[in-house]
Amino acid sequence: MKISVTVNGKRYERDVEPRTLLAYFLRESLGLTGTHVGCDTSSCGVCVVVLDGEKAVKSCTMLAVMADGHEIMTIEGLVQGGVLHPLQQGFWDQHGLQCGYCTPGMMMTSWVLLKQNPNPSEAEIREGLSGNLCRCTGYQNIVKAVEQAAAAMQSQPVETVA
């Protein structure tokens, strides 16, 4: 089936089997391997991407055909004009990653979280990220990373790219 999906601002038309999962479409049809896969049960969240600028979704629990006509943002779309997004800066500064496997999904979930709640408390961040597993960091520095990003985004609103 032919689908047309806008990913990180770029429109792609591809032919896919209906059973193709969005995560594999991104990784294998589009070569965007920053989105990972870690389980088969919608548990781990390493595959999270942003759908239509408003929903964090587990892309291994969504069919690629469901994204037809929609916009997807992946980790590769977070850098704008060569400048790190405050979330990327936060994860780096606060040692919010170790093996890096959960990191893209964590940042995508955080991106939506901060869009909905620009100034979250520690408890709200912990709640908001509880659909994403991390096996390395114990989450504490991830929380700090999101706090740093929230503060940075409040003081210097990121310009929306037209």
């Binding site: 990784r27 965007l32 391997t33 920053g34 989105t35 990972h36 896969v37 992946t74 980790i75 590769e76 977070l78 850098v79 790190l84 990327q88 994860f91 780096w92 990653l97 890096g100 496997y101 990191t103 893209p104 940042m107």
Partner: peptide, 14 residues
């Protein structure tokens, strides 16, 4: 970290 935070880590399935 710069590669990981950009989604440019290279894991086996990549």
């Amino acid at each position: 970290d710069p590669r990981f935070i950009r989604g440019h880590g290279r894991y086996l399935d990549d």
